[in-house]
């Protein structure tokens, strides 16, 4: 067994966990399994790439790599733009599609179906605009530095793990300690009762999309930076995202993160044991095991 799998698993698990946060929040607060969430990751990566391209055109120095990373100051700036655009996309989609179905009192499963249709359309639109050819944030190559115990990691990978932990911690504190966070939990417990108590349910829904789409954009950029950007990248991550959200317990931010890391590690070890071609099946096996043994997930409450 190669200990490198630990690093590989933590890195891909960070992306999965960050992406699963949005999924678990929309699931618990808006009460539907959002199949477009994977495409928010892909759109986030492409939108950030576009912003980075525009910034690079304005000031060429922004593209020059900042030691020890493979990218320049342009990328963090572009992420800000990408997050704003991805959030706009999610809020727009909620306004023209999900919000209208909700207002009509449509069944959760109809909204799931609409999200499935929108996901196909969004993904194919990416393929049309950017073609199926993979794109990259940077062409720079990085050397993986030894960390001891036979493990190696590039500075980019370490940054991704660190940044993810920081984001999740900050988000967890905000959700557990702010009035908005309390309102979010109230709405996820009982939307109509929360409305009766004077909670602005519309605002909670907007905050949910902002957090979810924002994290999805960052997760998409991370996946794009460490691997590559493809129109199907979000779709391929969808099953791991769902598995992570359910494994962690629907509605739990630390749960989604932990679920993501577990899935990432399981995938990395499975790749070494049974081969890379079966990678996508790991999330499915974990999903089935969770549904059989502990359907409420690690941090979930029974009956949720």
């Amino acid at each position: 067994m190669n200990p490198q799998a630990i690093i590989d698993g933590l890195v891909s698990g960070s992306t999965i966990g960050l992406g699963a946060i949005g999924l678990t929040l929309t699931y618990s607060i808006l009460r539907f399994a959002n199949f477009t969430h994977g495409d928010f990751l892909a759109w986030g990566a492409y939108l950030t790439l576009t912003v980075a391209g525009v910034l690079g055109g304005l000031a060429a120095g922004l593209g020059a790599p900042v030691y020890p990373f493979s990218f320049g100051w342009g990328l963090p700036l572009a992420i800000l733009g990408g997050v704003v655009l991805t959030v706009t996309l999610a809020l727009g989609l909620d306004r023209i599609l999900f919000g209208r179905l909700r207002a009509r009192g449509a069944d959760a499963i109809i909204i799931v179906m609409a999200s499935f249709g929108a996901s196909m359309a969004l993904r194919s639109l990416l393929e049309f605009i950017f073609t199926a050819k993979p794109a990259y944030f940077t062409k720079a190559l990085q050397i993986a530095n030894p960390l001891g115990f036979g493990m190696r990691a590039t500075p980019d990978q370490l940054l991704v793990i660190g940044l993810t932990l920081l984001l999740v911690l900050a988000l967890h504190l905000v959700v557990t300690h702010s009035a908005t966070g309390r309102a979010m939990r109230a709405v996820s417990e009982n939307p109509s009762l929360a409305g009766v108590y004077g909670i602005d349910v519309g605002k909670v829904i907007r905050v949910t999309w902002i957090i979810g789409a924002g994290m999805a954009c960052i997760a998409g950029v991370m996946a794009g930076l460490l691997v590559q950007i493809r129109p199907y990248m979000g779709f391929d991550l969808l099953l791991p995202l769902f598995a992570a959200a359910i494994l962690g317990g629907i509605g739990s931010i630390p749960g989604a993160m932990l679920g993501g890391l577990i899935i990432g590690l399981a995938e990395a070890f499975a790749v070494q044991i049974i081969g890379a071609e079966w990678r996508a099946a790991i999330s499915f096996v974990i999903l089935v095991l969770v549904l059989m043994l502990r359907p409420q997930g690690i941090f979930g409450q029974r009956g949720a």
Binding site: L97, R100, A106, I110, G117, S119, S124, E127
Partner: peptide, 23 residues
């Protein structure tokens, strides 16, 4: 190949439109 992805966009939008206006 690129234009073929538009076919999927059309069907996806059609699905959403029907769900919204003539479920």
């Amino acid at each position: 190949a690129r234009a073929a992805s538009l076919q999927i966009v059309v069907i996806g939008v059609m699905l959403c439109v029907i769900l919204l206006w003539r479920p």
